[in-house]
Computed example of a mutant assay.
Amino acid sequence: MLPEVTATRYVTPLREGGSLPGIVEADDLGTYVMKFSGAGQGRKTLVAEVVCGQLGRALGLRVPDLARIQLDPVIGRGEPDQEVQALLKASGGLNLAMDYLPGALGFDPLAFETDAAEAGRVVWFDALINNVDRSWRNPNLLVWHGELWLIDHGATMIWHHNWPTAATAAQRPYDASDHVLVTFAPDVAGAAAELAPRVTEELLTAVVADVPDEWLDGEPGFDGPDAVRRAYVEVLLERARGIGDRITIGERSTAAPSQAPEWVRVRLNVKGKGAK
C-alpha cells in the first residue's frame, strides 16, 4: 500500500497541467504535487497515475514517489482563485500526491541529451501504457540532478474509460512519431527484450494493489475493486507480450505534411507544411 500523509498547507497551483494540480506541504514535513480527486478528469486519472507510476518504478524508470494524501478543503480558504477554491472543495478526503522535485527543469530535447537505450525504455513503456501525452508539444519529463524523470501519467490506458474495448486495446499499435524522445534514436527492440519479460502477472498484481478501493468501487460492469484490478492486469499483461513489435516511428500521416516543429523534422528527415 502507498504511504499516507495529510496535507497541512496549500502552497500554490501548478497551471501547466489541465487538471490544475497544486503544491502542498504535508504532516510528514514533505512537499508534494497533489492530483485532486475532484478534477474534471475524475478518479480514473488518479488510478492511471498509480498504476503507471508504480509500474514504471518497478521497471527501473525514474518516477517520483507516490503517496495517498488526505485533504481538508479548509487549508485552501486563503486561495484567491475561485477555480482553485472549487477544486479544493470538491476534493475533500483521499487524493494522490507525488514527491516534489525542487529545482527540476522541464525537459528540452535541444538542451538535454539522452542515449538510445534510455529513450527506448521510455518509448516502450509509453507504448505499453498507451501514453498519448509525452510528445514534443507536452514532454511530461523533468530533468533533476542531471537525470530524466517521468511525470503525469493521467492520460494513459485510454481503454479504462470504456472497458468493453479493453480486449481490442490490448492489441492496438502505438504510433511514437510525435514522442519527444524520438529524435534520440530510441532502441525499442533492446527495451522490449529487457522490459517485456519483467511485466509478469505477479508484478502487475502487486502494482494494481496500490490503487485504493474507493477509486475503483462502483465501476460499471464489475463486481468490485478486485475485479477491476484484475482487468488492468489482463490488459497490460497481454499488451506487454507484443507491443514492441507494434511501435511505429515516422511521419504521423502520409496524407498530410508533418506538423512537427522544424528541429524535429530535420532530425527525422521528413517534410513539413509548406515544404517541397
Results as ranks from 00 to 15, higher is better:
169 A>M: 09
190 G>C: 09
249 I>Q: 08
48 A>H: 10
90 A>M: 03
14 L>Y: 13
229 R>D: 04
112 F>S: 04
176 A>K: 00
96 L>T: 08
222 F>C: 03
64 P>R: 11
143 V>A: 01
113 E>N: 07
169 A>T: 05
59 L>K: 08
150 L>M: 11
135 S>M: 08
242 G>V: 00
244 G>H: 02
72 D>W: 10
165 T>Q: 06
34 M>F: 12
68 R>F: 14
246 R>T: 05
273 K>L: 14
272 G>Q: 14
76 G>W: 02
90 A>P: 00
115 D>E: 09
272 G>A: 13
189 A>D: 12
263 W>Q: 06
209 A>G: 00
122 V>F: 06
257 P>K: 04
3 P>S: 06
214 E>K: 01
192 A>G: 13
215 W>F: 12
181 L>G: 01
164 P>D: 04
136 W>K: 09
107 F>E: 01
112 F>A: 08
16 E>R: 14
266 V>K: 14
241 R>T: 05
205 T>Y: 00
14 L>C: 09
47 V>M: 08
145 H>C: 03
236 L>E: 02
16 E>P: 03
22 G>I: 10
226 D>H: 03
266 V>S: 14
228 V>Y: 00
169 A>K: 00
181 L>K: 03
79 E>K: 09
252 R>S: 09
161 H>Y: 12
140 N>Q: 02
103 G>D: 00
63 V>C: 08
104 A>R: 01
254 T>H: 10
150 L>D: 02
112 F>M: 07
52 C>L: 08
46 L>R: 05
160 H>K: 04
40 G>C: 10
11 V>H: 04
144 W>D: 07
276 K>P: 07
276 K>A: 15
5 V>D: 04
202 E>T: 13
262 E>S: 15
12 T>I: 13
56 G>Q: 10
255 A>D: 15
63 V>A: 09
197 P>L: 04
32 Y>K: 12
82 Q>P: 10
235 V>Y: 02
220 P>D: 06
151 I>K: 00
